[in-house]
Write a protein that binds this DNA or RNA. Structure first.
Length: 467
RNA sequence: GGGCCUGUGGGUUAGCUUGGUAUACUUGCAGCUUUGGGAGCUGUUGACUCCGGUUCAAAUCCGGGCAGGCCCA
């Protein structure tokens, strides 16, 4: 059941604070401090992103944060889209700058003048780079940790290709990369081609990556764009082909932000707190010793042994040997969403087992102490699969077909017929109060008629309230 | 751009109308004790957003700044 808006806001902020993800008391709106546990999660995700891009022949780069105004203004649509939400650097020390500098809201305009120098011949193509950096956008609406912030941690990949088709192939590769990343985080998502009036400023087309949050709204986690030559022409990124012709490159970008963290809170969290997917959990298994006077030494020794084994096997394990009651430790690690808890007490020693608790389903059981490594490994796999399956179920149940304005559920993603024309699109958004997310990137069978004009259509459109 | 509201230990908060010793819970720290779902006891650290005004006296009243939140365009 979707949560009410206020309940969601309280619940979400509570988890962010209690799990130690972020401290929002920093005195600038929308700029929060990544606290250690939250940052570990983000780094875990970043690490996986690096792995994926490196494995697909992208090179990591790091561009300057500041962009000269003239460079920023070269692509007209682009600057119009960001005009209202960029930060400007206008002074250096006591001097006013001759040319103002933009604090990057995204890096197209920082990178492309350099691409113009780097790309000369078809042998330089494809050019595939990415960076993991922070960007800045002056949000005026209400901010919320990870979901709506003014300083945004994200990755962006930028590619240049000889032809439109080769750029399109890149988008297919991006979609594969996305699929693998999403699986790691156990996040379901939809790929929808955004409407003309909602695409990225300057893009030929935009694919939005959305997921559904517990308040019934959708959260856009990132996007993939095909630019064609929209940027390469104004930024003069040309290559010489085999026959000596000079042609503009075709470009793509792919980016996802710290909203992934917001999404995983929303998608997996429950009333006990965060639930971390094993793939990116900073701590995959926490060991709690159950000390009693008689067995203190034996229990400690066994815990140390298990910790050593798990770590040796590459499992991110932690021993919680604080001087506190077991119960209070349980609560601490449940809020943080640690997937597996292992308990070792006198009783377990006697039976040659280790007790476990699964965070996602709250099931308890035992693993033979001898098989602790394969046992934990299998548990983590099972948890990943079951979290993914459950999240997919929920996402599916959030989608509802409609064919008229009657009985519109406010907390669902609507699927309906739309002829695709801008007029009907705007009419739909105005009368229904929903935002059109777009049409499926991967074709899906559909027979219906435009909900506004009645024209028959063979592909659906999706709409939702957005975060 | 216009309007409204709010700032009290690390967190949550009482007190503000009617000016006078700042309340409680939680957290932190130390000791004792305890450990299979937030134990207990004792001791202890820690706050009135800032600047100015009124007053014998300001967390409290007034003005301004800063920060945050909400509503409207």
């Amino acid at each position: 059941m979707p949560m009410k808006e206020d309940d969601f806001a309280d619940w979400y902020l509570d988890i962010v604070e209690k799990a130690g993800l972020s401290d929002k008391r920093y005195p600038i709106k929308g700029m929060n401090v990544w606290t250690p546990y939250g940052w570990k999660i983000m780094r875990q995700i970043d690490g996986y992103i690096r792995e994926e891009f490196d494995a697909t022949d992208h090179d990591e780069v790091c561009f300057p944060l500041l962009i000269p105004e003239t460079q920023f203004a070269k692509e007209k649509e682009h600057i119009k889209g960001f005009d209202e939400e960029v930060y400007w650097v206008t002074h250096a020390g006591k001097n006013e700058l001759d040319e103002r500098l933009v604090v990057r809201p995204t890096s197209e305009t920082a990178m492309y003048p350099m691409f113009s120098l780097w790309v000369r011949s078809h042998q330089d193509l494809p050019l595939k780079v990415y960076q993991i950096v922070n960007t800045f956008r002056y949000e005026t609406k209400q901010t919320r940790p990870f979901i709506r912030v003014r300083e945004i941690h994200f990755f962006e990949s930028h590619t240049c290709h000889e032809t439109c088709e080769k750029a399109q192939d890149q988008i297919e590769e991006d979609i594969q990369i996305l699929a693998r990343i999403a699986k790691k985080i156990c996040l379901p998502y939809t790929l929808l081609i955004r409407t003309e009036w909602d695409k990225f400023p300057g893009a030929h087309y935009t694919v939005g990556i959305d997921t559904s949050m517990p308040n019934g709204r959708t959260l856009q986690m990132g996007s993939i764009h095909h630019y064609r030559t929209n940027f390469s022409v104004p930024y003069d990124i040309e290559y010489e082909n085999e026959t000596g012709e000079h042609l503009p490159v075709h470009q793509t970008t792919f980016g996802m932000s710290e909203r992934l963290v917001g999404a995983l809170i929303g998608v997996h969290g429950d009333d006990k707190g965060l639930v971390m997917p094993p793939g990116i959990a900073p701590i995959q298994a926490v060991i709690i010793p159950i000390i009693s006077k008689k067995s203190a030494e034996e229990v400690s020794a066994e815990c140390a042994r298990i910790l050593r084994l798990l770590k040796g096997a590459g499992i991110r394990a932690k021993l919680d040997d604080r001087d506190a009651r077991p119960g209070s430790k349980y609560y601490d690690w449940e809020i943080k969403g640690v997937p597996v808890r292992l308990e070792v007490g006198a009783r377990d020693l006697e039976n040659g087992v280790v007790s476990f608790y699964r965070r996602d389903t709250e099931e308890k059981g035992t693993i033979s102490a001898e098989d602790i490594v394969p046992g934990v490994r299998m548990l983590l796999d099972v948890i990943s699969e079951s979290m993914m399956a459950k999240a997919n179920e929920v996402q599916k149940s959030r989608i509802q077909d409609i064919d008229s304005a009657e009985n519109i559920p406010q907390d669902k993603i609507l699927r309906f017929g739309w002829c695709g024309c801008e007029d009907c699109g705007h009419k739909f958004e105005d009368t229904y109060g929903f935002k059109i997310l777009g049409t499926p990137y991967h074709p899906e069978p559909y027979q219906g008629s435009c909900i506004i004009c009645g024209k028959p259509v063979d592909k659906p459109a999706y709409a939702a309230h957005t975060m």
